[in-house]
């Protein structure tokens, strides 16, 4: 399910870090999910990989151990490595693109939602602990509690749409928020909104109730 009308894309910084392999897993999941929906960012990512190849050619070389080639040949003749390569073609027809389905264990109906109040539900996905990523379910017309950011927050829309003070974000659009942004995203009235949101620092909620709830929500 391609989404040709995407208006909000990944930044160069994110695509470059994903290509270099230095993003936390939670952010990589958002990048891989957006790229699955967005031909433009897929092409940009391709040029960052090409840049990586050019850097590899130019970055100098380190001396190998004596007999490295023979050792590698011996390794090869032992047969293919046990780690089974993911070679099956993946093409999702659901709401969630392939990489997200891998983490959820299926499409929308497989998500184990937990209520977080005011009709909003969330499901935290298992990733490395340097950042966290969750699915958020925001009923049509409802708001995500007012909050600022201590780190970077990526929010990718998968269903419905949300608005914040400046913009509207629909399926495939990604919002990149940092310390400077304080916003109150509100789900569009047309349809319940599902987003994938990653952060590398806890969110700072303004309202007293969400702040008290923070440890329990693991935000």
């Amino acid at each position: 399910m391609k989404t040709p009308q995407i208006k909000h894309h990944l930044t160069d910084e994110l695509l470059m870090a994903y290509s270099a392999g230095s993003l936390p897993e939670a952010f990589s999941l958002v990048v891989a999910t957006h790229v699955s929906l967005c031909d433009e960012c897929r092409a940009r990512l391709g040029s960052f990989d090409t840049l990586g190849g050019a850097m590899l050619e130019e970055c100098g070389s380190a001396e190998l151990d004596a007999g490295a080639l023979d050792a590698t040949m011996a390794r090869i003749l032992e047969g293919a490595p046990q780690v089974a390569p993911k070679e099956k073609p993946r093409k999702s027809r659901g709401v969630f693109p392939g990489p997200l389905q891998d983490y959820v264990g299926g499409d929308v109906e497989a998500v184990k939602w937990k209520p977080v109040g005011m009709g909003v539900r969330q499901a935290i996905l298992p990733t490395s602990h340097d950042a966290s990523v969750r699915l958020l379910y925001i009923p049509a017309g409802c708001a995500v509690p007012d909050h600022g950011h201590r780190g970077t927050e990526l929010t990718l829309v998968l269903q419905g749409a949300f608005m914040d003070e400046d913009d509207r974000f629909a399926r495939g659009d990604v919002e990149v928020a940092d310390e400077d942004l304080e916003h109150t995203p509100i789900a569009d009235i047309g349809e319940d909104c599902i987003c994938l949101a990653a952060t590398d620092a806890p969110l700072r909620f303004r309202g007293i109730v969400p702040r008290l709830a923070q440890p329990f929500l693991k935000i």
């Binding site: 392999g21 897993e25 693109p97 990489p99 983490y103 490395s128």
Partner: peptide
């Protein structure tokens, strides 16, 4: 480069790498 990058994430950073759909 992409094979080496993936090996780096696996062996040095000990993380998974989510890949885009084909």
């Amino acid at each position: 480069f992409t094979i080496a990058r993936n090996r780096k994430i696996d062996a040095l950073r000990k993380q998974n790498r989510p890949e885009p759909e084909d």
